[in-house]
C-alpha cells in the first residue's frame, strides 16, 4: 500500500474490556482527561472470562482492522480466576489467527483499574500499530 493511502486510513478497532479493571481504567482515563485516538469502540464484559474467541473471529471477519481485549492482570480477577481461563482461550485463538497472519490485528492487554494512563497510552499505540498494518483484507467484503 502506498504511503498516501496509509495516511488516509483510519483504522476501526473494537475492544472488549472487563468491567472491573480495564473498563474502570478507561473511565479513569476519562476522569483524567487523557486524550486518545477515537478509533476504538469498547464492548463491556463483566469479566475477561466472558470473552468467547468467536467474538474476535466475528469482529475480524466483519472487517475490524483491529480487535483488542483487556482485563485485570492475571491473579487480580474480580471473579477470582476468570482471567486465567480467558488467557488460555485468548492464546488459542491467537495461535489460530497467527496461521493466517491475523494475529497482529488481535491484541490483548492486562490493564488494571488504576492504570488510566496505561489505558490511554495503549489506545494510542494500538491505533498506531493497526494503522501501520493497513486495512483488514476483510473490510468491505460481503460476508
Amino acid at each position: 500500500m502506498g504511503e498516501e493511502a496509509k495516511e488516509e486510513f483510519e483504522p476501526k478497532i473494537v475492544g472488549f474490556t472487563c468491567n472491573w479493571c480495564t473498563y474502570a481504567a478507561a473511565d479513569l482515563a476519562g476522569t483524567s482527561r487523557k486524550k486518545y485516538p477515537p478509533n476504538s469502540r469498547i464492548i463491556r464484559l463483566m469479566c475477561s472470562a466472558r470473552l468467547d474467541p468467536m467474538f474476535v473471529l466475528k469482529a475480524l471477519l466483519n472487517g475490524a482492522d483491529g480487535v483488542f481485549f483487556s482485563g485485570c492482570h492475571p491473579g487480580e480477577c474480580h471473579y477470582i480466576k476468570g482471567n486465567f481461563y480467558a488467557r488460555r482461550r485468548i492464546a488459542a485463538i491467537r495461535t489460530i489467527l497467527k496461521q493466517f497472519g491475523l494475529d497482529d490485528r488481535f491484541k490483548s492487554y492486562w490493564i488494571s483499574a488504576s492504570e488510566g494512563e496505561k489505558f490511554a497510552n495503549t489506545m494510542k499505540s494500538l491505533t498506531e500499530e493497526v494503522r501501520e498494518l493497513g486495512p483488514n483484507p476483510m473490510r468491505g467484503k460481503i460476508i
Binding site: 492475571p74 486465567f84 488467557r87 488460555r88 485468548i90 492464546a91 491467537r94 494475529d103 491484541k107 490483548s108
Partner: peptide, 16 residues
C-alpha cells in the same frame, strides 16, 4: 483439558 486448567504464570509469549 487445556481450557479447564491454567497455571498462574504462563503463555505470556502467546499474548500481546
Amino acid at each position: 483439558l487445556p481450557f479447564t486448567a491454567y497455571e498462574e504464570e504462563e503463555l505470556e509469549e502467546c499474548l500481546r
